[in-house]
Design a protein around this nucleic acid. Structure first.
Length: 270
DNA sequence: AGCTTCGCCTGCTTGC
DNA sequence: TGCAAGCAGGCGAAGC
């Protein structure tokens, strides 16, 4: 599941392959790939990729002379740049959903087996009001987080997953952040507000270390060069239910919280 | 408005 | 062995 570290890795890989190239033609399998309110892909023909980066869990493309494209990868979305008419060694053709033909004989392809991903194309966008994207843990400060946790009764895990509060954190890194912060994922947000500095510090630390390892690969996610990320071997709690806590040896538990699998140490996290 | 649940979608895993 | 059910989850919509 591409979260901030995986999307950051993908964006860094795409950047040198796209910037400066012009959009020549586009192809799309299903219009359902567009998020509500989006322009269509042909809107981009003739424009050049000016900047490729990340906003929260989204890949962000800016164009010259104008325009932007926001790509949310859902669970299994994978954008890759290849020579046009060349098979892709990893991704299956039946999961190809969009092609953007580029100058220089290349194309940007979008593969997505589970089809949870979405394109949003516009000339301008307000991330917060149009797309519900708040600051990521590197952009937010302690005062911001504290203000957004105060008075909230929802469990801290659910609030960390809420992209309006903090963007970029998904199920894996929410669990990892709360483990290192020694906070029970079921704790109401209001009770955690006073620990915002600790939460923010560990979120940044976990995300930074994950980026350094090219992200976490559980199944589908790959870096631009086809290599898997390697941070999954450093997960302290995610996917380790029934195993021993690396800090205290207590058996790790898995519960369902807000409809999501949630992993934690019942001894360290209180 | 805040919080929770549901549905989308496919492929792998589990169980009979 | 084979097939159906279960499970995974980002995110928007719907329900309370």
């Amino acid at each position: 599941m591409p979260e901030l570290p995986e999307v950051e890795t993908i964006a860094r890989g795409l950047k040198p392959l796209l910037e400066g190239r012009q959009v020549r033609r586009t192809w799309l399998r299903h219009a359902t790939l567009y998020r509500t309110g989006s322009q269509r892909l042909p809107h981009l023909v003739g424009r050049r990729f000016a900047w490729v980066g990340r906003k929260g869990k989204n890949v962000l493309f800016r164009f010259k002379p104008a325009g932007l494209m926001i790509l949310n990868l859902g669970m299994t979305g994978s954008p890759v740049v290849v020579k046009a008419d060349e098979d892709h060694g990893i991704h299956h053709a039946k999961h190809l959903h969009a092609r953007i033909g580029l100058s220089g004989g290349y194309e940007l392809r979008y593969y997505d087996p589970r089809r949870f991903g979405h394109f949003y194309i516009a000339d301008d966008v307000d991330f917060r009001s149009d797309l519900n994207i708040g600051p990521d843990p590197f952009e937010a400060d302690v005062a911001y987080l504290q203000a957004n946790l105060s008075g909230r009764s929802a469990p801290i895990k659910a609030l960390l997953l809420d992209q309006r509060v903090l963007s970029g954190i998904g199920n894996i890194y929410a669990d990892e952040t709360l483990f290192w912060s020694e906070i029970d994922p079921r704790t109401p947000g209001d009770k955690v507000a006073g620990k915002s500095a600790r939460v923010l510090q560990h979120a940044r630390d976990v995300l930074t270390r994950a980026i350094d390892h090219g992200g976490s690969t559980l199944r589908d996610y790959r870096q631009q060069d086809g290599k898997p990320g390697m941070f999954q071997i450093h997960h302290a709690v995610y996917g380790r239910e029934g195993e021993a806590c690396i800090e205290c040896g207590t058996e790790l538990e898995k519960i369902t919280l807000g409809g999501r699998g949630t992993h934690f140490c019942p001894n360290c996290q209180r």
